[in-house]
């Protein structure tokens, strides 16, 4: 039987959740024994090669590209897991939801004290993914099967969850592994 495939991505996140996954230390060898990584920054595969058992989503959706990638993960993965506070709540990027988008861009590209932008224009190249009106948690965009909050979730949390999911067992995190910070 071939190994179950796992795909991962970082949408509007900081890669901290991926760092936490690497933080499982030598257990990554055991993980490599039981799974094959498909599309993931870990192996730098840019697109899916085939359908995956588990997709790990770091980050929420801040722009159109995030939405596109997230929908692709939903399409290609049997089980989709939101990993980290940005995916489950919007997280730190969602602080911008408290300020209208126009004001946010004006501060970042025009009025901010350290900005040097003589044209006074906000970047609008069509190559740049369009920003959404606000940052959305992953489950407000597609159906998410499991959530692992934390900023980031600890290596132990990710390890426990992955093992349970891959073994087809119910995901019941011990108290100390469910954290919002």
């Amino acid at each position: 039987m071939s190994k179950p495939r796992v795909a991962t991505t970082s949408l509007c996140g900081c890669f901290g959740c991926h760092m936490s996954l690497l933080d499982i230390d030598e257990r990554i060898l055991a993980l490599a024994e039981i799974v094959e990584f498909d599309k993931s920054p870990i192996n730098d595969h840019k697109d899916f090669t085939q359908r995956c058992a588990v997709g790990l989503i770091e980050g929420g959706c801040a722009n159109a590209e995030n939405v596109h990638v997230l929908r692709r993960f939903r399409e290609m993965c049997d089980v989709l897991v939101s990993v980290g506070d940005c995916a489950t709540t919007g997280g730190i990027p969602a602080l911008r939801n408290l300020v209208p988008l126009g004001e946010c861009l004006h501060e970042a590209y025009v009025a901010g004290p350290s900005v040097h932008n003589p044209s006074g224009r906000v970047p609008d190249d069509p190559e740049i993914p369009l920003l959404l009106d606000k940052v959305y948690p992953a489950h407000e965009v597609v159906k998410i099967d499991f959530h692992l909050p934390g900023c980031p979730p600890s290596a132990d949390t990710l390890w426990e969850a992955l093992n349970a999911l891959l073994a087809g067992k119910p995901l019941a995190l011990p108290y100390a592994l469910l954290k919002y910070d």
Binding site: G90, A94, N97, L98, E140, P149, Y175, K179, Y180
Partner: peptide, 22 residues
């Protein structure tokens, strides 16, 4: 509030975040 979230095993709320202005 957070501690009750943990006690009740809330991993993500089923409602949309409101992001109110406060």
């Amino acid at each position: 509030l957070q501690a009750l979230g943990y006690r009740f095993g809330i991993t993500a709320p089923q409602f949309e975040y409101q992001f109110p202005h406060r």
